[in-house]
Every structure is written in C-alpha cells, then in structure tokens.
C-alpha cells in the first residue's frame, strides 16, 4: 500500500464498550504479591551479570584455551582483532537493553537495522584485517572446533543475560532477545580472536563469526520465552 491512510476517519467508529469500560473495577486479589525487585536492584543485578559474563570470557582464556602467541604477539594487532567484535557486542547490547524514547525499548525498525548491521560489520572487519588464505585439509575440522568453543563462550553469557533481563521486555521480546544473543555471539567472537591463532578470513568468519548469527537466533527464543514482561 503506497497511500497514507487517513486515520482521522477512525473517529467515525463508535465505541461499543464505552459503558462497559466504565464498570466498577474489581479490587486486586487478596493473595499477597510475590516479591519483585525494584529498579536499583535490577540495575545492580544487570551490572553483576555483565561483569560475570566478562569474567567468564577471561577465565576461558586463562584456564581453557588461548593462542600460543598471546604473550608476545603485537598488542596493537590483537587489539585491532578484538576491537571489531567488541564494538559490535557493545552496540548490540545497547540496542537490546536501552529504554528508548518512550521506555519501551528501541523501535523495531532500528533493531532490525542493527541486527543486519552487526554481522555485516563483523564480516567487513574480518575481510579488512584477516588474511585471505586458501582452504586446507584441516579447515573444516578447525572451524567446527572453534565454532563449538565459541558457542560455549556465547551460551553462558546469554543464559546469564536472560536471567538478568527476566521480565524486562514489555514489547518486541524476540527482536530484543535477538540483539542480546547477537551481543553474546560478538563477545564470544572477540574472545575467540584471543583464543585461536588462525587468522584466515574464512576461518574467522565461519569458526568465530557464525556464533553471532546463531546467538541472535537463540536469543530470539530466549527473549520470547524468558525475558518477556
């Protein structure tokens, strides 16, 4: 439809429930309300969840897996490799959690743009800063190993985030959950850039980056099931 509907004409329609809507309101049930956290507790919980998620990534690098050249590789090069995914994670997290102009979150149109832009930015960053190599015989084995590790690195923050944001999304829970999942996927991709020394663009995109998209899909389900108000 290309024309703009004339919404003033809606006023032609009478309200069939005008009288019923004025009926007496039943008082709240006598049962006691369950406990619920006030705003300050919610903010504290979210800060704790964010810190826990970052500590989990650091612990992974400390105790599970890190690239062999981590201690002597160029700090600038490592920072550049991390910066792209970290920035993507920060943007996606902001879109998932920002209150927006009316307190109902970021509008759906802008969420959709962000969900398309974050993986595209990661891919562009990878193509600019990673090496373009051929595919060797161990390519898919390494990709699967890294994708599995990245999935774990994204799943734990996503679970924690879903807990920290329970009942938080009054509107568009799937969209906002997808943004949360994408943030967790991008965080995992950033961690993988410090855990895996392979710098082939194809490996980084598939082994480290696919979790960004997978995280968005998982986050959409998590948001709808667990974070909806």
């Amino acid at each position: 439809m290309t024309h703009d509907p004339n919404l003033a004409r809606l006023d032609e329609i009478p309200d069939p429930f005008a009288g019923a809507a004025m009926a007496p309101i039943r008082p709240p049930d006598g049962r006691s309300l369950p406990s619920s956290a006030p705003r300050s507790s919610v903010h504290a919980t979210r800060a704790a969840v964010l810190i826990a998620a970052l500590l989990f990534e650091v612990a992974w690098l400390a105790f599970v897996e890190r690239r062999p050249d981590l201690t002597f590789a160029s700090a600038a090069r490592l920072a550049v490799r991390c910066a792209g995914p970290l920035a993507a994670a920060a943007v996606a997290l902001a879109y998932a959690t920002r209150a927006g102009p009316r307190g109902l979150g970021v509008p759906v149109e802008r969420l959709a743009i962000a969900l398309a832009a974050v993986p595209a930015a990661f891919a562009a960053h990878t193509l600019v800063f990673a090496r373009v190599d051929g595919v060797d015989h161990a390519f898919w084995r390494h990709v699967v190993a890294c994708a599995t590790a990245a999935s774990v690195l994204a799943a734990a923050p996503l679970a924690a985030g879903a807990w920290g944001l329970r009942h938080a999304f009054a509107t568009a829970p799937a969209w906002r959950g997808a943004a949360l999942g994408m943030a967790c996927g991008a965080l995992a991709a950033a961690t993988m850039s410090l855990a895996c020394a392979t710098e082939s663009a194809a490996h980084v995109m598939l082994g480290h980056g696919v979790v960004i998209v997978a995280g968005a899909v998982a986050g959409a389900f998590v948001g709808r099931a667990g974070a909806r108000a």
Binding site: P38, R39, H43, R102, L104, H167, A170, A229
Partner: peptide
C-alpha cells in the same frame, strides 16, 4: 509488579502498562 524494576525512569507508564 514483577517487572516494575524494569520501568525506565522518566518513561511514560501507560504505554508500558498497555504493552504488558
């Protein structure tokens, strides 16, 4: 009641409650 801590400071209450 469950979600009250998620109500943003300075936001409009009615649209938020209608959404819930």
């Amino acid at each position: 009641h469950r979600a009250r801590g998620n109500f943003a400071a300075g936001a409009a209450a009615l649209p938020w409650m209608l959404a819930i």
